[in-house]
Nucleic acid binder design. Structure first.
Lengths: 218, 218
DNA sequence: AAATATTTTTAGATTTGCCTAAAAAATGCG
DNA sequence: CGCATTTTTTAGGCAAATCTAAAAATATTT
């Protein structure tokens, strides 16, 4: 079994190595809010446990075992985020800290039962894919419309609130699953967005609406 | 904020001091599966934090602040046990270890939302009362029939499985909420119980049945 | 009440995860 | 290239939580 600290390092390495490059000591220190010297210590320990390969001065890469562990931590994190938002009515911006604690509860049976309880969700409330019990996950990137970069083509693929008020609004604005769109501008003042749908003039939507809409990139 | 280890000590002191007597170093060591020397160290630390009063060689008692902390930990533990059994379909005997981990997740908001989500339950699956957000709990002891001591008068107050098979069986044996009974004998071989209902000859029931019946003491 | 046994505390060590400060390696630039 | 800067590692230390072994206090027995 691994400690909470070891799990946090493995998770951080996983995320940082998505760029393709080796993961460097300083980047890990920044990401984990700790000092480079502490990172070096831990990297040696994790290499001894065969979770990663460590080349002095040249950074690290996860071994297959390390990657497997990372995916299981990410699975727990995202499942709990889903639970907090969809079942306990947390806002999707309030859940990260709590999920950071819950992800370290060690019980595969718990993880799998929670997964099943919620209907084997494929994406967490931020649109990130949830690995299944074998570590596989959908590659299709689903992100919240609020996070979509301007002029990036995308298509609505999920709505995170099923209230009649929301659905009524979507119907009137002709927004539905599959609708193609682009964000033209993001106004920081109120987080409202100016969006453009093909064959229609641009119009604006509120932060409250946008946060419930998820898109996949095209 | 308190460490997991500190929380475990406080919880152990709380349970041990229910007997009324001061809690002794050796008892804590046994209960926490650690050595007396380690306990002494920690007790000094907890006294410095005003969670308990420590008299060398004479044991400890919780301060009001310590008691408040203990109740909040017990609240979290029992709420999670309830969730695991009633929502995730764990057996009531499988949940303790997992709840031991979940109880240390620190977020009052999480605890209160979980409580509300489950309908503010008053007792956990073992029949132990769940403290509310202010630390109050029902005094009425609800315990599993399997734990009831022989010749202790009691009354059925809950049934933890609502399957038709079980309910049919209860009807035939004339067992229902409110029925008074006593355990006459407990057979260790198969955990079956010989029970006595007023105005009826004694009869025996299986472990499988008894584990779903909860009684309150009279 | 003295001797013995038990319980508890102290003293000193260990492990984990972190730190600072200084040394060493790699990188960047004139 | 060679010097300066940045990055990384090493060395030594610290705090938390544990341990063992020995000493001190309390309890029990005769």
């Amino acid at each position: 079994m691994y400690t909470t600290s070891e799990e946090n390092y493995i998770k951080a390495v996983y995320h940082l190595q998505q760029s393709g490059k080796n993961v460097l000591t300083n980047d890990l220190a920044a990401s984990l809010q700790t000092k480079p010297a502490s990172v070096t210590d831990m990297l040696k320990k994790l290499e001894a446990k065969d979770l990663l390969l460590y080349q002095k001065y040249y950074g690290v890469r996860l071994t297959p075992e390390g990657k497997k562990l990372a995916l299981s931590i990410i699975r727990r994190h995202r499942l709990w985020e889903f639970f907090l938002v969809e079942h306990l009515q947390f806002g999707w911006d309030e859940v990260h800290e709590i999920a950071e604690q819950l992800e370290h509860v060690k019980s595969d049976l718990l993880t799998d039962k929670l997964d099943e309880y919620m209907g084997l969700p494929k994406f967490d409330p931020h649109g990130d894919p949830i690995p299944d019990s074998k570590g596989r996950m959908e590659t299709q990137q689903q992100i919240c419309l609020l996070q979509l970069k301007p002029n990036q083509g995308a298509e609505i693929c999920a709505v995170s609130d099923q209230s009649t008020d929301l659905l009524e609004m979507l119907r009137l604005k002709q927004l539905q699953i599959g609708t193609r769109l682009e964000v033209k501008q993001h106004f920081s003042f109120d987080n409202s967005l100016e969006i453009k749908i093909p064959n229609q003039p641009p119009f604006s939507i509120s932060e409250q609406l946008a946060k419930h809409l998820f898109v996949k990139l095209k």
